[in-house]
Amino acid sequence: MNIVIADDHAVVRTGFSMILNYQEDMEVVATAADGIEAHQMVAKHRPDVLILDLSMPPGESGLIATGKIKEDFPETKILILTMYDDEEYLFHVLRNGANGYILKNAPDEELLQAVRTVNAGGTYIDPKMATSLVNELMTHDNANNKNDPFKILSKRELEILPLIAKGYGNKEISEMLFISVKTVEAHKARIMDKLELKSRPELVEYAMKKKLLDF
């Protein structure tokens, strides 16, 4: 199977490439440092599996990239690689189209099993997170949806919110996302309106509470 690895740390990309290329049934055909580059590599190589880091600052995050890549290349299976053992992240990446979720500290054998499972059409959840997923699904109701930024905000708004919270100005954000300053201002206004926030400090507090700063 052909594999692309996307992670913002070169040592992780190199290490995982060595592990996977040692397998007779696997070949790493490309690597990427953020979500945008991951999209480009998937478009170029059309891999069977994309191993995608969830948090890749300052580039596009794995959460945003998952939705975009799955929409454009549904045949590519996406295995999320992360250090977050948090059911909120797990639930949202699966809803965005990911086929698996594995922690970075998992043993090599578990990584290989995860890659083979998603490639075969299955869903792989890190054993440490399986119980959390069940609990999240059982308690996730419409009342919770009202406080869920991943359902309230659009993908573009989810990109812009953490940048605002980190202190970037409208011009800086427009240059980072290749959109106009007016578009940034319009998205910012919609974000504040949807989340019922009145100031930047409130937005920063919200982003920290919802663990959105890495995105």
Rank of each mutant, 00 (worst) to 15 (best):
M83E: 11
D214H: 11
T123K: 02
I3M: 04
L90T: 00
E71N: 13
I5T: 00
E185G: 07
V11T: 14
D108P: 01
E159F: 01
Q40M: 11
I125Q: 04
A43Q: 14
D85G: 15
D148W: 05
N105D: 15
I3N: 03
S154D: 09
G67L: 00
N105T: 12
L137E: 15
N147P: 08
M1H: 06
L177Q: 08
N142I: 10
L158H: 04
L79A: 04
V42P: 00
M208K: 15
L103F: 06
A106S: 15
I173E: 03
E196K: 14
D193H: 15
L195N: 06
A43E: 15
E185R: 13
I5L: 05
N96W: 03
L20G: 00
V28K: 01
L195K: 12
D34I: 02
G67Y: 00
G15S: 13
D148M: 07
M18L: 14
V115S: 02
K198R: 14
D126S: 03
E75V: 07
T117L: 07
L213R: 10
L103N: 05
G122W: 03
L212N: 07
T117K: 00
Y101V: 03
I160Y: 00
A186P: 06
E136H: 14
M1Y: 08
N2G: 06
S17N: 08
V115I: 10
V49N: 01
P201R: 08
R200S: 10
A33F: 05
K77D: 08
G122N: 07
H9G: 05
L195V: 08
T117Q: 09
L50I: 08
N105E: 14
D193S: 15
K104D: 09
K171D: 12
L133K: 02
S55C: 12
F16K: 02
N145D: 14
N119H: 06
V204L: 12
E172D: 14
P162A: 09
M176H: 10
R46C: 13
Q23S: 11
F150Q: 00
K146E: 09
L153N: 07
N144I: 13
G97W: 03
I36M: 13
T76F: 02
G122V: 09
D108W: 02
T82I: 03
P57R: 12
K104C: 06
T31N: 05
V115F: 01
V4T: 02
H9T: 09
H9P: 02
E157W: 13
D48H: 11
D108S: 11
V4I: 07
L50E: 01
L111I: 09
K211T: 10
D53L: 02
I173V: 07
D108A: 14
V49K: 00
L103T: 05
K68S: 12
A189E: 15
K128M: 13
E159N: 10
E27C: 06
L103A: 06
I69D: 01
L94K: 02
V11M: 13
D48S: 14
D214P: 05
L111R: 01
S199C: 10
T139I: 12
L81G: 00
N99P: 06
E157A: 08
V29R: 01
L90M: 08
A130I: 09
E185D: 15
A189I: 09
H39L: 14
E175H: 11
N21V: 08
F215Y: 10
H39C: 10
M1C: 09
D34V: 01
K209E: 15
K146Y: 11
N96L: 09
D108G: 05
E60F: 01
F178E: 14
G67Q: 03
V42G: 02
I164F: 01
Y22D: 14
I36H: 05
